[in-house]
């Protein structure tokens, strides 16, 4: 390899062959495996999948907040910091909140109820940089203005219970952005909010992202949000990525049967509910080597899909699907 070549030039994060398992006396099976993806600077990447598919496991492994029992293998390369999995807890603490921040689903529980909003923002500010009291307060005020909270001066001295859900989520975004991180991990940040509030928060994220060129890993199960905010999409099913590509490619030509199923089961305004086409149930025991989506797939081929797991097939420059028949799946109309 030549010296000047730097594979991390525009990628903020590279995840290579990530595998997470919780060893127990019963099984060694990995809950998440064979995860490869990159996040470029200023890119918004969606991680989509149903509950239990491992989305949150992946995100927590990046910021190293998994439970102690978790066994993580592979590489998580952060630009200028190297492999996060090799760092000590102390080194990691310098990265959390500074290089990588996270916002969570429940704005009701993520804030500490006994401290004021101002105190909690200042706490985040002072964790990575020394500020005088006055500077810190000014900076906190500036952050509240950034996230468009009305009357920020009075809000600083209020407690979380005095704020609505949308306002609390704004405060959490302000805290997450306090030290200008390179990567923001947003774990279902709008799921607990009303549609109008959700739209406001999405607007805010879009605007902040444009302004500061921050990269976002956006975890969600809402395909509508993905279509309107994200640049590229990773679709997870039972611990594996089954399809990945640009948002345009994924929505215009979903090429994995699971992605297709997801798209079909979303209720859409102005349309009748689509009746799901269920595959005939499979009587014989399914082989351990079969494709993970075998049971639910309506495109399956008994011999091919039943005996081995599909590898990624490249469909276009930025579009891959882990299916034996991606062209067949992609052709069929939604």
């Amino acid at each position: 390899m030549e010296k000047e070549f730097n594979p991390m030039a525009e990628n903020i994060l590279e995840v290579e062959n990530l595998e997470i398992s919780y060893p127990s006396s019963f099984s060694e099976e990995a809950v998440v495996r064979e995860i490869f993806f990159q996040i470029k600077q200023g890119e918004v990447v969606a991680l989509v999948g149903e509950s239990g598919s491992g989305k949150t496991q992946v995100s927590l492994s990046i910021i190293r907040l998994l439970a102690d029992e978790a066994r993580v293998a592979g590489k998580i390369l952060l630009a200028e910091r190297g492999d996060l999995l090799l760092l000590t807890e102390k080194q990691m603490n310098k990265i959390r909140g500074k290089d990588i921040s996270m916002i969570f689903q429940e704005p009701m529980t993520a804030l500490n109820p006994v401290f004021t909003i101002g105190f909690q923002i200042v706490e985040a500010l002072r964790a990575h940089k020394s500020y005088s009291k006055k500077e810190a307060r000014e900076q906190a005020l500036y952050l509240l203005k950034q996230v468009k909270i009305p009357n920020p001066e009075t809000r600083l001295d209020e407690y979380p219970h005095e704020l609505s859900g949308g306002m609390r989520q704004r405060v959490l975004i302000a805290i997450a952005l306090a030290s200008q991180p390179k990567l923001l991990i947003a774990d279902e940040p709008t799921t607990a909010l009303d549609v109008t509030t959700q739209a406001e928060i999405l607007d805010l994220l879009r605007e902040l992202q444009k302004k500061s060129k921050i990269s976002i890993l956006f975890i969600t199960h809402n395909l509508g949000v993905v279509a309107e905010l994200c640049d590229s999409v990773l679709v997870m099913y039972r611990g594996k990525i089954v399809e990945q590509g640009s948002v345009k490619a994924i929505f215009e030509k979903p090429s994995h049967p699971y992605t297709k199923l997801l798209m079909n089961s979303v209720p859409r305004l102005g349309e009748k509910l689509r009746v799901q086409e269920l595959p005939p149930s499979f009587q014989n025991k399914i082989s351990e080597n079969a494709c993970i989506f075998f049971e639910r797939c309506s495109f399956r081929d008994q011999d091919i899909c039943g005996s081995s797991e599909p590898q990624f097939k490249v469909l276009s420059e930025e579009h891959k699907s882990a299916c034996f028949f991606p062209e067949k799946v992609g052709e069929k109309k939604l």
Binding site: T196, T197, A199, E200, D203, R206, L223, G224, V225, F251
Partner: peptide, 24 residues
């Protein structure tokens, strides 16, 4: 506003650029 706020699961350049109009 309520109808406009519902995110649509379709790739649409226009909607990706548009901002939601309602004040908080």
């Amino acid at each position: 506003a309520l109808l406009e706020a519902v995110p649509r699961p379709v790739y649409d350049e226009e909607r990706r650029k548009k901002y939601f109009s309602l004040k908080p």
